[in-house]
Amino acid sequence: MKHTISVLVENEFGVLPRVSGLFSGRGFNIDSLSVAPTLDPTISRMTIVTSGDDRILEQVSKQLNKLIDVIKVIDFTEQDYVEREMVMVKVAAEAESRAEVLRIVDIFRAKVVDVTPRSYTVEATGTPEKLNALVELLRPLGLKELVRSGPIVLGRGAKAWKSAE
């Protein structure tokens, strides 16, 4: 089953391998990972998407909590949350397909961020499912290169995690 986990960690060197080691040590792949500092610059927030046996992932989550550099672990599997990912796609755009790319961009409320006579680079944000749909529509027109940020998530509602807790 797919799990999305947020891990709040000390913003220091050497923390990332401690976290990723708990996954790799059990033969689990990390499907995506995004990291950046939080409101408190001494703390970074990692968003990890992984999939695997629930019981083992519960262990991983407990082990994460045990790491000295980990301040908080939030597993969003059983919570309501908002999820967004960003994608940039370089798509071939020759004479006849240029208008079609722009129509798709418009439908998905995406943006063109770079233009050449033979290509557009398109930027879009949304749920991973929406981005999948966009990519599939662009694919027949000729995808040249693609990069995705991996999802980031926040719990819904007014409640928030604060470092002072």
Binding site: G14, G21, L67
Partner: peptide, 14 residues
Amino acid sequence: MVGITRPVTKHNYL
């Protein structure tokens, strides 16, 4: 050593 002993220490420091 920090890399080598990461899985066999409770914590380690450089």
